[in-house]
Design a protein around this nucleic acid. Structure first.
Lengths: 91, 91
DNA sequence: GATGATTTGTGCGTATGTATC
DNA sequence: CGATACATACGCACAAATCAT
């Protein structure tokens, strides 16, 4: 992971770029390819990894934070929320 | 060097600011005006020297680090990679 | 060893320009 | 024409590593 994820993103698809990034990260987390508590690359790094802007990355991360999958700590980074700490979603 | 480099940067040029900063530093290094192992000014200082933001400086430095011309050490500074330690780039 | 200053690492929020719908 | 979305750029605050005192 974190080499080059541009192949997972297709600007011509109908789905928005931020939704495609969010979906890709969500899969990596739920399948366990991203470990609990693991720190993600910095937002500018994620932007170049996915070939999108930082604004798009922030929107994608925001979605996963709302879902409880990620936690953001100012000055430290964005981390995979440990499964035990994740709230159950009931909407 | 390190007095005032704003004259080397022109916001109206088509080239991006980070690319102009990177180009200027690359010239200073390859011409030997910056010695091997020499420490650059801190990022906030470079920002005021070039008249751009620290984010722009960091992007420019990142380019030169990718090219193997600079090395960054947390808490210490950014240094000119000795020519002997520089990987040969030809792509 | 403790403290404070320095420097890089990261995230937060915003503004502007451009392209597209 | 207005609304939406992305890229560049700005300034700021806080965290962590390092170094001098």
């Amino acid at each position: 992971m974190w080499e080059d994820r541009r192949q997972h993103i297709d600007p011509r698809r109908i789905a928005h770029l931020w939704a495609q990034v969010a979906a890709d990260l969500r899969t990596e987390i739920s399948t366990g390819r991203l470990d609990d508590g693991q720190r993600l690359p910095a937002e500018p790094d994620l932007a170049s990894i996915y070939g999108v802007s930082r604004a798009t990355i922030r929107r994608a991360l925001g979605v996963l934070i709302d879902e409880g999958l990620l936690s953001r700590l100012t000055g430290r980074g964005t981390f995979v929320t440990p499964a035990a700490d994740r709230p159950q979603r009931h909407d």
